[in-house]
């Protein structure tokens, strides 16, 4: 059976895996964002502990995904929940890192001007720091999304489904078609999501900031 025939015959299963994959990525990146952005902002307010937290997060990042999944499996058993948990944790770091650096790298003169003309701390955050850090933060979300698309293939190992299912099946049965049926769509998904975020980002950037940050 050629690859194309394989895709046609198994389109329903592949589509199902693809949708599940999107769900895994979508939910974990969103969760990661909801944790990382506020945490990143918080760290810019208490900069003394920031290196500690960032280093800790970086350390977690270096633990192989397989090991983390193993732990999650031991603690929470098989299924969607442990997979989402692990993926969310991995999704946090790039966003956290970029939120923190994005805000701390906003030029001091803008902050001084903002404070000097009478903005409150939260107005400075909302009107100056976040808009100026936005492209960096969105960059973090983009990195996070691309990584999560590939990490999510591991989730198949603990029964969370997704394109990983096809890949693991293929690996255990020496069936190249299965492997490619998982790998090709996941690569395409990564490229498409990355491009999409980039496009949204460009659309949202005011003219005044274009060329200032890529």
């Amino acid at each position: 059976m050629t690859l194309i025939e394989f895709f046609i015959v198994n389109q329903k299963d592949i589509l199902g895996c693809l949708i599940r994959h999107f769900q895994l990525v979508g939910i974990s990146v969103t969760t990661g964002m909801l944790i990382a952005v506020p945490l990143g902002i918080f760290l810019t307010r208490v900069r003394r502990i920031a290196p500690l937290v960032l280093n800790f997060a970086g350390m977690i990042q270096t633990i192989p995904g397989l090991v983390m999944l193993g732990f999650a499996l031991l603690l929470f058993g098989i299924g969607l929940l442990p997979a989402l948990l692990v993926l969310s944790i991995y999704a946090i770091l790039p966003i956290l890192h970029n939120t923190y650096t994005g805000i701390t790298e906003v030029e001091k003169s803008y902050i001084e001007a903002a404070r000097g003309i009478g903005m409150t701390d939260s107005q400075i955050l909302l009107k100056v720091e976040l808009p100026l850090a936005r492209s960096t933060i969105v960059g973090g979300i983009r990195t996070s999304t691309v990584f999560t698309v590939s990490w999510a293939t591991l989730a198949g190992l603990i029964g969370a489904g997704g394109l990983g299912d096809l890949i693991w099946t293929g690996l255990s049965t020496y069936n190249t078609n299965f492997i490619l049926a998982g790998a090709i769509p996941s690569a395409i998904v990564a490229v498409i999501l990355s491009g999409l975020i980039h496009l949204i980002q460009k659309k949202l950037t005011p003219r005044g900031l274009k060329g200032v940050s890529a």
Partner: peptide, 14 residues
């Protein structure tokens, strides 16, 4: 009113 050397106009605003 407050004016600083680095000007500090907000680049995200017109």
């Amino acid at each position: 009113g407050y004016v600083i050397q680095q000007i500090g106009l907000f680049p995200n605003m017109t």
